[in-house]
Computed example of a mutant assay.
Amino acid sequence: MSIKVEDYYSRDTFQRMKTFADEQETPFVVIDTATIARAYDSLGEGFPFASIYYAVKANPAAEIIRLLRDKGSNFDIASIYELDRVMGEGVGPERVSYGNTIKKSKDIRYFYDKGVRLFATDSEADLRNIAKAAPGSRIYVRILTEGSTTADWPLSRKFGCQTDMAMDLLVMARDLGLVPYGVSFHVGSQQRDIGAWDSAIGKVKVIFERLKEEDGIILKMINMGGGFPANYITKTNSLETYAEEIIRFLQEDFSDEMPEIILEPGRSLISNAGILVSEVVLISRKSSKAMERWVFTDVGKFSGLIETMDEAIKFPIWTEKKGEMEEVVIAGPTCDSADIMYENYKYGLPLNLAIGDRMYWLSTGAYTTSYSAVEFNGFPPLKAFYL
């Protein structure tokens, strides 16, 4: 396959990033903050009534936090460490949601003492911890969704609960002195099926109606999580199309009684802003008659490309070499047999690609630096530069 850079970046943006990259030693990722700013603005234009909570786990760089802070973003936080980082950049607690449903009681109290009053939950034990450590806080319950077959990076099994339990938890929240505030879901990261939101919103509507009719609880918020796609090899609909359809789903179910809507984008905001640059370390064949080459590069699963696990996320790869293409296996540099990015999905790279050539992994702004290992095989964490 031949990757066209212009399908992913404007000519000026790519040239600016590449000019900078050519002066750096691999491996590293370079991220264009202007691209992030445009993505944030586009999301706001698509969902003008929604509150955006950036999922910090996607890339916790101070440069990104400051940019989004100044644009008015809120922040979805997964740990006390992320909270310290975000609040250290001047973000107030009213702009924070503790979105992790798996948390220690002492961490709940830490958030509460810092002023945070919005918490996610999906279990009775966690809810009781919140009631003790963060009394009077607003609660939203995460439900299970069925987007696992159409999302490139599914999230449905570990987090969330069934609809009946969600209703029980919201009633319990009221009885424990908490504020039953809303319902959340996540249709899966890099979700290509817009219909997944329709199904999830339909479940939420049932919860809203039944709690109002049977328990007198009026919920006020829907947290629709993330899932909006980045631009990888497998094409998706535009953000505009996603927005139009999802708004239609909301209007069909809630008409004039639209609750507060929260979005938690991560990948869709920053993936397309990044280019990871690596160098070819070795090219070999496993036998004299082998039909495919192995291309070993100086980044791998443990240095930022863990989302290639099970070949889930297929990053576009561009090189300066041109000409005849040949199918290859692409692997990382570590002494671990799991450090193979692509073997079943056959990438084509130029036949004249040589040791020392650079590989440009496009759309790698999200979940690369934050997934990079500290010192596996002694390799340092992935370097990052922000333009």
Rank of each mutant, 00 (worst) to 15 (best):
P180H: 12
T241R: 00
A273C: 11
K205E: 04
E252Q: 12
G177E: 03
P229R: 00
A243Q: 08
R267T: 15
I217Y: 04
V281T: 11
A230N: 08
I207Y: 08
D193V: 00
E244D: 14
A196L: 01
V280M: 11
I283G: 15
A230P: 10
Y181S: 07
S278D: 14
L269E: 12
M221C: 15
S184T: 11
I275W: 09
L211E: 09
R192H: 13
S189C: 06
A196I: 02
V280K: 00
Q190D: 06
E260T: 15
G177V: 15
W197P: 05
Q190S: 07
V206G: 06
N237A: 08
S284T: 15
F249Q: 06
Q251W: 04
L178K: 12
I222E: 01
R267M: 14
E244M: 01
M221S: 14
E209T: 04
S184N: 07
V281S: 15
N237C: 05
L239E: 04
V277P: 15
E252C: 00
S271C: 15
M224Q: 10
Y232M: 12
F254R: 00
W197L: 02
T241V: 03
D215N: 13
Q251D: 06
I222P: 09
V204W: 00
L276C: 10
I222Q: 03
S238A: 06
S284H: 13
D198K: 05
G216H: 01
R285D: 12
T234M: 07
I233H: 06
E213H: 09
K286S: 12
E279Y: 04
S268E: 01
E264G: 01
E257Q: 13
K286Y: 12
V183N: 14
I275K: 05
I194M: 06
S189M: 03
I275M: 13
E260H: 13
G227M: 06
R285P: 04
R267P: 07
L269Q: 14
E240Y: 02
E245T: 01
L282Q: 14
T236W: 02
D256V: 04
P265N: 11
P265M: 10
L276R: 06
V179N: 11
L263C: 11
I262K: 02
M258G: 05
P229A: 01
K235F: 01
Y242D: 02
I270C: 14
G202H: 01
D198F: 04
K286V: 09
E260Y: 04
S268D: 02
S199Y: 09
L211S: 08
R210D: 15
V183G: 13
L276T: 08
K212C: 05
E209L: 12
G182M: 14
F208S: 09
A196R: 02
S184D: 11
E260D: 15
I247M: 03
S271Q: 11
G177Q: 08
I247Y: 02
